[in-house]
Amino acid sequence: MKIILSSLFLIALSSLQAQNVADYKYVIVPQLFKDFVKEDYQLNTGLKTALRKKDYEVVNENSIPLDVQINPCLATKANIENTSVAFKNKLKVTFTDCNNNVISTYEGSSKEKDFTKGYQEALTFAMNQVGKQNAKDLPVTKTENTTTIKETTNKVVTQVSNKTVENKNVYKSNGKNYTTASTNNNEFVLIDQENSQVIAQFYPAAQQNIFHVTVISQNGNYQTIGYLNGNNIIIEYKTGDKSWSTTTYSK
């Protein structure tokens, strides 16, 4: 029960951090939108341009900044949905948080018959409703004990940049080397040494040696469970909608 309550607390805390897209510094924009897979109509470029004009930092799904890797709730994810009706090009721009909850939605429409021009005009109308980025004072804590993401990031970067990582902090899995870096109050991250990318962040659960884990994935971050077992770090990775498998990282 304590583990469940702890997990619910983290989710609730993250949702309180930002209530509007303007509260976010980062916006993740996917390469393709599901409703426009066959033809993009330059919507990806148009959305990125509109966001940058409003001072947002646009993030590519395959190149996540370190502070967002450590705390995925610093970013919102954008999507464009096709809501067109007869004789009118319509779309909806939706922003979701790290728990996939919708935080802001903006609609635009155009009577322009040319699809590219029509969708671009509709996107302009929708984005005109979006406020400028105003996330400078946003608190980014993940636990009751307050710490800023800047402090956490600096600590991780310092350890990753240290080329003489002690052997006791090196773990191996599938022929690759990984290292750990402490962040705050028994929290730590697991880092791929080859590219200095954080692949998972661990938060202590109520039971000893069990952790709530945020897995950093190109297909989308998700929550899972991790364990410490002697010299091994074990993570339960999602392999399907309802299937999981464990990966062991050993010293």
Rank of each mutant, 00 (worst) to 15 (best):
V140K: 05
C73P: 04
T164Y: 07
D35S: 00
V21P: 14
T180Y: 01
L47S: 03
K172A: 04
T239L: 01
A200C: 06
N209W: 12
I28M: 13
Y41G: 03
K90R: 12
F211R: 02
P204V: 06
V37C: 02
N232L: 02
D23V: 08
G46K: 04
E107S: 12
G175P: 03
N184D: 07
E57P: 12
T141K: 15
K155G: 05
A126V: 06
D192K: 02
G118R: 00
N232D: 12
N209L: 11
V93I: 14
Q207Y: 15
V59L: 07
Y178V: 04
T153E: 13
Y171H: 00
Q197D: 09
T180I: 03
K172M: 07
V85F: 13
Y203A: 00
P65D: 02
V156G: 11
C73W: 14
K142E: 12
T147W: 13
K242G: 09
T214W: 12
K150S: 12
I235S: 00
N20C: 06
Q120T: 05
K163A: 09
Y56C: 10
A205G: 14
L74H: 08
T153H: 13
M127T: 11
C73K: 12
D23F: 08
S15G: 11
Q193V: 09
L74T: 10
K2C: 09
V102D: 07
T141P: 13
Y178G: 02
K168P: 10
N232W: 06
T183I: 09
S6W: 15
S161A: 14
F188W: 04
F87L: 15
D23L: 08
S173G: 02
P65A: 07
D97F: 05
Q31Y: 14
L32S: 11
E81L: 12
N221Y: 06
T143A: 13
V160S: 12
I70D: 07
F36Y: 10
Q207C: 06
D241A: 06
A181P: 03
E194C: 01
A18W: 08
K113L: 14
K54Y: 01
P65E: 02
S243P: 03
L8M: 15
K150I: 05
Y41N: 06
G46A: 10
D137L: 13
F211V: 00
N99K: 12
C73V: 10
A126L: 10
N145K: 11
Y26D: 01
R52L: 02
L10R: 15
T224V: 05
S15P: 13
V140W: 00
T224D: 10
I103D: 07
F87Y: 15
N169K: 05
I103G: 07
T45D: 09
G131R: 03
C73S: 09
E112A: 07
K172D: 04
T83V: 05
T180M: 02
A86W: 15
K142H: 13
Q208F: 03
D35C: 01
S63G: 03
L32F: 14
G175E: 03
Y178R: 00
Y41V: 05
A22C: 14
Q207P: 02
Y24W: 04
L8W: 15
E61P: 06
Q218H: 11
K38S: 01
G118H: 02
D23Y: 08
K168C: 08
E39S: 09
T96E: 01
E187S: 02
G131P: 05
E57Y: 07
